[in-house]
Design a protein around this nucleic acid. Structure first.
Ligand SMILES: Nc1ncnc2c1ncn2[C@@H]1O[C@H](COP(=O)(O)OP(=O)(O)OP(=O)(O)O)[C@@H](O)[C@H]1O
Length: 729
DNA sequence: AATTTGGAGATTTTT
DNA sequence: TCTCCAAATT
C-alpha cells in the first residue's frame, strides 16, 4: 500500500485494480505514466514476480526511467521486469524463438534505409522505372499494409491503380528477399511474433504464462499489429492495463489507429475504465490555452482536465521577421528567463515540426554560447560511415544478409567493380546459391584473375572475423576489423573537415562497442546490432544542463518548465501536405496540443513572416492554431516595423476575418507567381506523359516555379513549371 | 574500375 | 542548401 501514497484518490483506484482488463483514459499531465509506474510497484508489493510483468513504453528511455522509479519504490527486483518498446521487447523474444519460423538467431534488423535499398533493387530486377514510380511511395504502401495486417495476397484484391498492382508484386518479393537474407524490417518485428504465436501454440502459452500482467503506456499510438499482438498475449489471463489519451495520438503515419482504444472497450466487455482529471504539470493558462485548441477537433473522447496550479503567465506569441530573427528572439527570451527566474538551461525545450528547422535555431544558440542538445535528428547510427562498419559486423554474424554484403563488398574500394558484382549476382541466381557462397567459389567463374583474388581475400576477411567472434572480445574485434580494412587511415589521408568528422564518428562507434561490452553480462554482436537499430530518438537525452531541441513528435511524454514551439505558420504547423485532408489537419492539431502541454510554467509560440526553404524565400501566413487559443490567455509580442502594418496581428480579432485576410494574401502571391499559366493550387491539369492530375502545391516564382501534381495514374510528382508543359483542363 | 560531374530531389513526423 | 544517383571522364 505504501507505494501508492504518492497518488491521488483516482490514481490510487486505477493503480490498485490489478486483475482483469483496465483502461485509463486521461488528458495530458494527469499522471498516467505515474500511475502505471506505481501500479507495477504495487504488483510487486502484492507478491507478483518481476518476470511476470511486461511493460510496453513508447521509448526505451521511458522504460529505463520507469524501472528506475520502481526500484526507488520497492527496492531490488525491478530490473527483472521486461520493459521496453514493442519493437525491442519482441525483437528480444524473436532472438530466442525465431528458428521456429525459419530464421536463425543472428537475423539482421533492417532500418528504413536498408529496406528502401532492397525495394529499389527489387524494382530494378522487375524493370520497374524508379523514375516513374517512386520507391519511397512503394515502401510506404508496403509498410502501411504490414501495419494494418494486410498480406500481399490480400493487398492484391484491393489493388486497382498501376502503382498498387506493382506494389503488390514488389511486396511479395520483398518479404521473400528479407527471408532469404535472414533479415526483418521494423514492421516484421511485430508481425513475425504474431506468425510465431499463431504457428506454435506451445510457444504462445509459454509467453502467455510468463507475462501474466501486461502494461501498455501511450496506447493511443499503437497500430493494428501491436493491438493484435497484445490481445494474443493477454488472451489467457486478461490482466492488462492500457493507458492513453486519444487527444495525443500523433503517429498515424506509422499506422497508429485510435480505433484501438474504441475496440478495446468492445473486445473486453468487462473492462474497468478509469479517468484522471487533475493535471499536475501545467499552469492554468497553459492548460486553458491547450484546451481551447484541442476543442476544435471532432470525435474526441470526452475528458475533463483541471489544475490546482497557479494561473501563471500568459502564453506569449513572438511574431518575427524571418527564421533568423525567430532564433534571435528566442535567445533573448531565454536570457531573460535565466535572469529573472530560477531556471536552468535544462528546463528549456525548443520544439519544431520538421528537423530542418533546427538549423537556424542552432545558429542563434551557438552565437550566444548557450549549450544545447539536439534530440533525434540525423541519428548517429544512421550515418553513412557508421552504417558501413555496421554492415561488416552484420555479415560477419549473418552472411545471408546480402544488402549489407553488397554495401561493403567494394568499400573501401578493393577492385571489385560493378560489372563483376553483376556477374556474381547472375551466377548466384542461376545456381540458386547465396551470394556469399557464390563469392567463395568464384575461382571457377570467368572473371579477371585480379578481381577473383580480391573477392577471395574479401571472403577470407569475413570468415576470419566470423571465427574470431567467440575468441576475442567484441571491442577487440571491432578495433582489429576497422584497422584491417584501413578505413581510419583513408579518412585521415583525405584530410577534409568532413572526413575528419567521419574519423571521429568511427572512433565513437568503437567506444560505444567497448562500453556495450563492459556493461553487459553476455555481450553478443547480434545483441549490440539490435540495440543500435532500435534506439529511439529520445534515448540519448541525458541530464546535462543544456537546452533541448527536438521535434514535436519526440517531445511526447516529456515535460519542461519552459517550452518554445516554433514555426506556427500555415504550411509548417499544420504542415502543407496535410491541408487537404481534415483528419490530417486534426492530427497536426493534436501534435500542437502535445507540444503545448509539455510546458509546466511558460509557453512561447513563435511565428515568422518568411523563412528560407531550400535556399529560397517562402512567405508565411500565421497558423490557424494561433487563433484557436482563447484571447485572454495570450499575449502577442510583435516588433513594430513596416511589415507589421502590412500584416496586422492575427490574434487581435477573433472572427474569421483575420484568417481570411491572410489567406487572400497567400492566393495573391501564388497568382502572381504563375500568372502566365494560370496554374495554382487545385488546378486540374494534363501532362503529356503522366496524364491527368491536380496541382497540390506551387513553390517559387518565374523560371523557378515548381509544382507538385497529384496524378491519377502514378500519384504525386514534382515538376518544374517551365518545362512541364501542363495544360489546364 | 575509379573518380568526377551535374542535375534532381528533398523536409513531414519514427520504430 | 545538401545529398544522392546516373552519366561522363580518366
Ligand atoms: N498525484 C500526484 N502528485 C504529485 N505530482 C503528480 C501526481 N500525479 C502526477 N504528478 C506529476 O505530474 C506530471 C505529469 O505526470 P505524467 O507524466 O505521469 O502524466 P501523463 O498523464 O503521463 O502525461 P502525458 O500524457 O502528457 O505524457 C509529472 O511531473 C508527475 O510527477
Amino acid at each position: 500500500m505504501s507505494v501508492l501514497l504518492k497518488l491521488n484518490q483516482a490514481q490510487q483506484e486505477a493503480a490498485k485494480c490489478i486483475e482483469g482488463p483496465v483502461m485509463i483514459i486521461a488528458g495530458a499531465g494527469s499522471g498516467k505514466t505515474r500511475v502505471l509506474t506505481h501500479r507495477i510497484a504495487y504488483l510487486l508489493e502484492t507478491g507478483i514476480k518481476p518476470y511476470q510483468i511486461l511493460a510496453l513504453t513508447f521509448t526505451n528511455k521511458a522504460a529505463k526511467e520507469m524501472k528506475g522509479r520502481i526500484t526507488q519504490l520497492v527496492g531490488s527486483g525491478a530490473d527483472k521486469i521486461w520493459a521496453g518498446t514493442f519493437h525491442s521487447i519482441f525483437a528480444r523474444i524473436l532472438r530466442n524463438e525465431c528458428e521456429q519460423i525459419g530464421f536463425t538467431k543472428n537475423f539482421t534488423i533492417y532500418d528504413s534505409e536498408d529496406s528502401l535499398n532492397l525495394i529499389k533493387s527489387i524494382m530494378k530486377d522487375y524493370n520497374i522505372s524508379t523514375q516513374q514510380y517512386n520507391p519511397k511511395a512503394v515502401q510506404s504502401k508496403i509498410s502501411n499494409s504490414k501495419n494494418a495486417l494486410v498480406s500481399p495476397v490480400e493487398l492484391q484484391k484491393l489493388s486497382h491503380t498501376p502503382i498498387d498492382v506493382l506494389t503488390c508484386k514488389v511486396f511479395s518479393k520483398y518479404q521473400l528477399r528479407l527471408f532469404q537474407n535472414n533479415s526483418m524490417d521494423f514492421d516484421d518485428l511485430l508481425l513475425k511474433p504474431i506468425e510465431l504465436f499463431q504457428k506454435n501454440k506451445i510457444t504462445l502459452e509459454k509467453y502467455q504464462y510468463r507475462f501474466q500482467f501486461l502494461n501498455i503506456d501511450e496506447f493511443q499510438d499503437t497500430n493494428r499489429a501491436q493491438y493484435l499482438l497484445i490481445n494474443i498475449l493477454a488472451e489467457r489471463y486478461k490482466n492488462l492495463c492500457i493507458v492513453g489519451d486519444d487527444a495525443q495520438s500523433i503517429y498515424s503515419f506509422r499506422g497508429a489507429d485510435i480505433k484501438n482504444i474504441l475496440d478495446f472497450q468492445k473486445d473486453y466487455e468487462e473492462v474497468k475504465i478509469f479517468r484522471l482529471e487533475q493535471n499536475y504539470r501545467s499552469t492554468k493558462s497553459i492548460l486553458a490555452g491547450a484546451d481551447g485548441v484541442i476543442k476544435n477537433n471532432s470525435n474526441q473522447i470526452k475528458k475533463t482536465l483541471w489544475t490546482d496550479n497557479e494561473i501563471g503567465e500568459q502564453i506569449s506569441i513572438l511574431e518575427t521577421e524571418d527564421d533568423k530573427e525567430e532564433g534571435l528572439q528566442i535567445v533573448a527570451k531565454i536570457q531573460k528567463e535565466l535572469l529573472s527566474q530560477t531556471m536552468n538551461l535544462k528546463d528549456i525545450a525548443i520544439l519544431y515540426r520538421t528537423n530542418s528547422q533546427s538549423r537556424s535555431l542552432e545558429d542563434a544558440l551557438r552565437r550566444q554560447g548557450f549549450a544545447y542538445e539536439i534530440v533525434g535528428g540525423i541519428e548517429f547510427y544512421r550515418r553513412k560511415e557508421i552504417k558501413d562498419i555496421l554492415a561488416y559486423l552484420r555479415i560477419i554474424i549473418n552472411p545471408a544478409d546480402e544488402e549489407s554484403l553488397l554495401r561493403i563488398i567494394n568499400f573501401p574500394t578493393r577492385g571489385i567493380g560493378d560489372t563483376a558484382i553483376q556477374k556474381v549476382i547472375a551466377i548466384s541466381r542461376n545456381t540458386k546459391k547465396g551470394l556469399f557462397e557464390t563469392l567463395k567459389q568464384i575461382i571457377s567463374a570467368e572473371l579477371p584473375e585480379r578481381v577473383k583474388n580480391s573477392i577471395l581475400t574479401f571472403c577470407k576477411l569475413i570468415e576470419k572475423y566470423n571465427q574470431l567472434q567467440n575468441k576475442i572480445s567484441l571491442s577487440e574485434l571491432g578495433r582489429t576489423l576497422v584497422d584491417e580494412i584501413g578505413i581510419l587511415k583513408l579518412l585521415k589521408e583525405e584530410g577534409t573537415v568532413e572526413s575528419l568528422n567521419r574519423w571521429e564518428n568511427i572512433q565513437e562507434l568503437l567506444s560505444a562497442l567497448t562500453e556495450y561490452c563492459d556493461t553487459k553480462e553476455e555481450p553478443t554482436l547480434a545483441n549490440f546490432l539490435e540495440e543500435v537499430s532500435l534506439i529511439s530518438a529520445t534515448d540519448n537525452k541525458n541530464e546535462d544542463n543544456k537546452i533541448t531541441l527536438m521535434t514535436l513528435h519526440a517531445a511526447k511524454g516529456l515535460e519542461f518548465q519552459i517550452v518554445f514551439i516554433t514555426g506556427l505558420e500555415e504550411g509548417l504547423l499544420p504542415l502543407s501536405q496535410t491541408l487537404q485532408n481534415n483528419d490530417e489537419v486534426e492530427e497536426e492539431r493534436r501534435l500542437f496540443y502535445v507540444g503545448m502541454t509539455r510546458a509546466m510554467k511558460k509557453l512561447y509560440l513563435t511565428q515568422a513572416r518568411f523563412r528560407y526553404r531550400f535556399g529560397e524565400i517562402s512567405y508565411c501566413v500565421p497558423s490557424r492554431f494561433i487563433d484557436e487559443i482563447p484571447q485572454n490567455y495570450v499575449n502577442v509580442e510583435s516588433k513594430k516595423n513596416y511589415y507589421s502594418k502590412k500584416y496586422s496581428k492575427p490574434t487581435q480579432n477573433t472572427d474569421s476575418q483575420s484568417s481570411e485576410k491572410y489567406f487572400s494574401q497567400e492566393v495573391e502571391e501564388i497568382d502572381d507567381l504563375t500568372l502566365s499559366t494560370k496554374i495554382k493550387k487545385g488546378s486540374l491539369v494534363f501532362h503529356d506523359t503522366f496524364g491527368n492530375g491536380r496541382v497540390v502545391i506551387v513553390i517559387g516564382s518565374g523560371e523557378n516555379a515548381k509544382v507538385t501534381v497529384d496524378f491519377e495514374e502514378i500519384g504525386k510528382k514534382n515538376l518544374l513549371l517551365m518545362y512541364a508543359n501542363l495544360k489546364t483542363r
